[in-house]
């Protein structure tokens, strides 16, 4: 019984917006199965009463004052855009064609 099926991998790829080919799915699914078995070991650690860690030092309340700093120019902002129009980022239709 694999820890993750090919169908699940296909669903995750859709969720992550990666149009995987069938060949890639065939290749990836068993690899992911192996990796998930490896990482699943964390569940063997009894850690119910252990707090989570996300930083070497427990920092809190890092904030900036409500002040303005210079922005990018619109030219800079749009400099990497694959397409631009009317000083805006041009993107493909958001809804599928009917």
């Amino acid at each position: 019984m694999p820890s993750i099926t090919r169908e699940e991998v296909a669903h995750l790829a859709r969720l992550a917006r990666i149009e995987l080919s069938d060949a890639e799915l065939d290749h990836l699914a068993p690899q992911l199965d192996q990796i998930i078995t490896l990482v699943g070991q964390v569940s063997q650690v009894a850690a119910d009463d252990i707090p989570p860690t996300s930083h070497a030092l427990p920092l809190t309340n890092v904030m900036r004052e409500d002040e303005n700093v210079p922005c990018l120019t619109p030219e800079q902002a749009l400099s990497g855009a694959p397409a631009a129009e009317a000083q805006r980022f041009r993107v493909p239709r958001i809804l599928e064609e009917d």
């Binding site: 995750l12 992550a16 990666i18 080919s21 990836l28 239709r93 599928e96």
Partner: peptide, 26 residues
């Protein structure tokens, strides 16, 4: 659509290991 273009671009732009880890993380 934008969604399709995003999916095609990520498929073409990312290598195997990146795809593996994105899917694992997802």
């Amino acid at each position: 659509s934008a969604e399709k273009v995003t999916s095609l671009s990520r498929e073409a732009g990312f290598g195997d290991e990146v795809k593996r880890r994105i899917i694992l993380g997802t």
